[in-house]
């Protein structure tokens, strides 16, 4: 504890107890319904709340949007169809028509991450993907799917993935080692990319927003000076909406490419 207080000096400082200016506070897990099963803390937390909210909002929207099943789509229905065709074409381009077996998985991943990221943009809302454990779980789900499908479909032939064609025999062991390492680090990069983007974006946003509050408490000059961080915050907010979409897209896109490896291991 004392060691930690040395490493994280903010611990005792009263200033960081103020919620408004602490960029880390937004990632705090708060227990809403405490729950303990077999010694494990499985409380329903704010993170769980926003996972549930993502589930409810997305499912509610899509069920409502597709309930008409109109031949000529309504506005909501065309959004749902656009999302469907966007993901379907992405998957088909990356993994071929065989890849469409995994369409529900890719679609769920994309929509879940996208909606939870967008919900996280609302002030005081929690961003589910700002916790590494969540993105790691999703990335490992994809990794496990790739491994299971790869070995189930191709048996040991799946290992051809690590033997690129057209490499001279001398270099082959080296190249294979690199291929194996890059394959094994996939879940790391896959999950850290999403996590770090959401975390860093929200911290940056919070820091600049905090500048506005701090400066404007200094009187007239401070308020005039606060215009700069305000402009910055507005720009960053737009950027964060882009990142919220882009990271969901990137996560889904990488999932498609990894699934392509499972389906066509000799294909590269």
């Amino acid at each position: 504890m004392t060691g930690q207080s040395a490493r994280y000096p903010r611990q005792g400082e009263q200033g960081f107890r103020r919620v408004a200016n602490d960029p880390i506070h937004q990632f705090q897990i708060q227990r809403i319904i405490p729950l303990e099963v077999g010694g494990l803390d499985l409380s329903f937390t704010n993170s769980s709340l926003f996972m549930a909210a993502t589930l409810a909002v997305t499912t509610g929207f899509l069920v409502l949007a597709t309930s008409g099943r109109g031949l000529v789509p309504s506005r909501l229905q065309s959004i749902a169809e656009m999302a469907y065709e966007f993901i379907a074409s992405m998957l088909r381009d990356a993994a071929g028509t065989q890849g469409l077996r995994f369409f529900p998985l890719v679609f769920s991943l994309f929509m879940f991450i996208l909606v939870s990221n967008l919900l996280g943009m609302v002030p005081y809302f929690f961003t589910v993907a700002s916790h590494l454990i969540v993105t790691a779980a999703l990335a490992l789900l994809v990794f496990a799917t790739v491994l299971i499908v790869g070995f189930a479909r191709h048996g040991l032939g799946f290992l051809k993935l690590f033997v690129p064609s057209g490499v001279p025999g001398v270099l082959l062991p080296l190249v294979m080692a690199i291929e194996v390492i890059s394959f094994l680090t996939r879940p790391v990069s896959h999950s850290v990319r999403l996590f770090a983007n959401m975390l860093a974006g929200h911290i940056t946003l919070k820091v600049f927003a905090g500048f506005i509050v701090s400066l404007s408490s200094l009187g007239a000059v401070g308020i005039a000076g606060a215009i700069l961080p305000l402009a910055m915050t507005i720009g960053l907010t737009a950027l964060e909406f882009l990142v919220a979409f882009l990271q969901a897209y990137v996560f889904a896109m990488l999932t498609c490419m990894y699934l392509n490896d499972a389906l066509h291991p000799g294909g590269h």
Binding site: L42, T45, S47, S48, L105, S108, M111, I133
Partner: peptide, 17 residues
């Protein structure tokens, strides 16, 4: 916080899927 997050992610994402 990991167990709680994993369990609730499994529940919500599973249901979502």
């Amino acid at each position: 916080n990991y167990p709680s997050q994993l369990v609730w992610l499994a529940i919500t994402f599973g249901l979502f899927y």
